[in-house]
Write a protein that binds this DNA or RNA. Structure first.
Lengths: 360, 360
DNA sequence: AAGGGATGGGAAAGCGCTTTCCCCGCATTA
DNA sequence: TAATGCGGGGAAAGCGCTTTCCCATCCCTT
């Protein structure tokens, strides 16, 4: 390409080494005079370092990978904002890849990020139930980590990864208890897709609270659905064919919005005829009418926290068992036990919930 | 790092050159036997190409940059989805950087993307009114283009860039005409921030339609606001202090949502007391209650189209004036006249608009 | 006044890949 | 049979940077 560090050095009358040290920092000092000359020369020539070459020489890039289902989904959008802001603070660029909940695509994307040698990968896309898919992903991630890459999971990806975990199960249980507290006894649930672990996790929380209260939740009252407007809408329609719940629990806000649409279409009043709750507290949840009762998940913080974890200096255990601070170059796999950050969720009561009809 | 092409080559008993050609394609052929051996060897070793090294050797990366205000804003989220999907199809990884409508940050981010030698930059963040800021951005983009980088603007960034342009002005005019058609004569407008060109562009459309109809729009009826829920809410509050419009035109959906919240807070009925319209048709616009009348902007398509434009083979004019198809290596600045793709918008009438109160 | 750290500068060896250039052997043509 | 391509293989020269050495000063210390 155009202006190289060599040009800058020549113009400043110094060696390549000095120019490099002056512009891009190093443990070695450069005399003030020369340093100033180099900087001036760089500015005059409009020099910009050539990142791929730096990456090659340093054996380390300045990029972060974020793996998610869909950037346009506000859930992931907010996470990505948190992550990329934290990344920017650390001088990293964020590469966002969408998998659309397809394990094969996810695998390919992990390989791409690995090939790019992203410093770290944030797994915002949730874990799969399918064991074979999980195994293959683990394998690819393992290879990445073996070369010094860091991985942080934002959902349950097994115990071997650093994780930032919202209290999915507990949050769902609390939410359900809130509905029980209002007097509801007939529930219907729209979890996410059955193949994702989050769905099951949250559903488990719901069951937990219902069991506690001795309320039954038959299979006819559960209808899995994609995390989408249409998914939520269709699932709600199917549920209403076979039961008459007083409370509908959608385990994602986007799904809840679809549910609201379906209910409105059927002329049902929310919360007069039926209460509806969501999960995640995406930005528009509060602005719906009725405003959606939901579980606040600290999405932005999750993204930021994940990056913090990923960039945390990583002690490595030498064969002798003593921690040593080898740099990234001689990087071996990470031998620490994984860090886990548990983030609390919070039930947010809004206008979409009320006591069941006929309650006094 | 770990497994290099050299390892693969050695294991397959071939030269580095052959291994490279077999795995990563080239204009030269490799015999079937050797090619198979190389592929097998790569698979067995779990080889993944080292992208920074490839970039250095090829003088070209496999990344795309998208510059936007905020990933968590659905407007940009949807654009990004379109762009990154198109990029993925072309084998590119997408780097997303947020500028939060700050020209300085934008400048820094352009430099970073330049340093990464992203193949192309999609400017989804809108142009600034400030001339000095614009000049500096142009300068940085110019340097990037001088080295062969491609730039596509999604909003008005001046005539020198390839652009994908939604019909902002026309869309706003049509929207306004729709309100006029319903009988409205007293308007209030909440454009975006005054420093962004889109805001002015759309406002111009509104004025155009009002002028046509001979309806006045005094300065007291216009209140600029950030593209955000809170911005729209606060601006609406201020507007209502000093005027009693029958129609409120928010020139972004996120702003309109804020406006709805403020109106609801004041006990005003939409559309009974006042009609509200937005702009963009972000996914949740249709799911609000009342569903928002707005202008559909083909966001996803804009992103995809931008990438298509950016990746389009680029003829270059030789000094003699004859187009030649030199490859990217000897890249000079792009001498074609910029491509412009105009995308139509469409007014979508929903429940948030009705004839003004008292109309018969 | 001589020995010995610091200190700062430069030459050059890579980092992992692509691509030119050269060469060899085979098939084709005269 | 000799001349001529040509297809496919390999050696090696980079791509633009960082970093290890090595070296020359300079300033302390004894």
């Amino acid at each position: 390409m155009r202006v190289t560090l060599g040009d800058v050095a020549r113009r400043a009358g110094v060696s390549l080494a000095t120019a490099s040290r002056a512009l891009n920092g190093s443990d070695r000092n450069v005399g003030d005079v020369l340093a100033a000359r180099v900087r001036a020369s760089a500015k005059e020539l409009g020099y910009l370092p050539y990142a791929p070459a730096q990456a090659l020489a340093r054996a380390s890039t300045a990029t972060l990978g974020v793996l998610l289902h869909d950037v346009a989904d506000p859930y992931f959008g907010v996470i990505t904002r948190g992550a990329s802001e934290a990344a920017a603070e650390a001088g990293l660029l964020t590469m966002v890849v969408s998998t659309f909940a397809d394990p094969d695509l996810e695998l390919r994307n992990i390989r791409m990020l690995h090939a790019q040698r992203a410093r770290a990968i944030v797994l915002a896309a949730s874990g799969y139930v399918d064991e074979e898919a999980t195994r293959r992903l683990d394998e690819a991630l393992g290879a990445y980590r073996a070369e010094g890459g860091r991985v942080v999971a934002l959902t349950d990806h097994g115990p071997s990864y650093d994780s930032v975990r919202p209290a999915n199960r507990r949050g769902a249980a609390d939410l359900t208890r809130a509905l029980l507290g209002l007097g509801h006894r007939r529930f219907a649930v729209v979890p996410g897709p059955e193949r994702l672990r989050v769905s099951l996790d949250r559903l488990l929380g719901v069951r937990e609270a219902l069991d506690e209260a001795g309320v039954a939740l038959g299979p006819e009252a559960v209808e899995f659905a994609e995390f989408s407007h249409e998914g939520g809408r269709a699932a709600t329609a199917r549920l209403l064919e076979r039961s008459r719940p007083t409370a509908l629990i959608a385990l994602s806000d986007v799904g809840a919005v679809g549910a609201l649409a379906e209910l409105r279409g059927r002329g049902l009043d929310v919360p007069g005829d039926i209460s509806v709750v969501g999960f995640d507290d995406i930005p528009c949840a509060a602005q719906l009418a009725p405003a959606l009762t939901t579980v606040r998940v600290p999405l932005e913080r999750m993204g930021a926290e994940a990056v913090r974890l990923a960039l945390e200096p990583r002690p490595r255990t030498a064969p002798g068992g003593i921690e040593d601070a080898t740099d990234g170059l001689s990087a071996g796999p990470d031998t620490r036990s994984p860090r886990v950050v548990d983030l609390p969720t919070e039930t947010v009561l809004r206008a979409s919930t009320a006591p069941p009809p006929g309650a006094f």
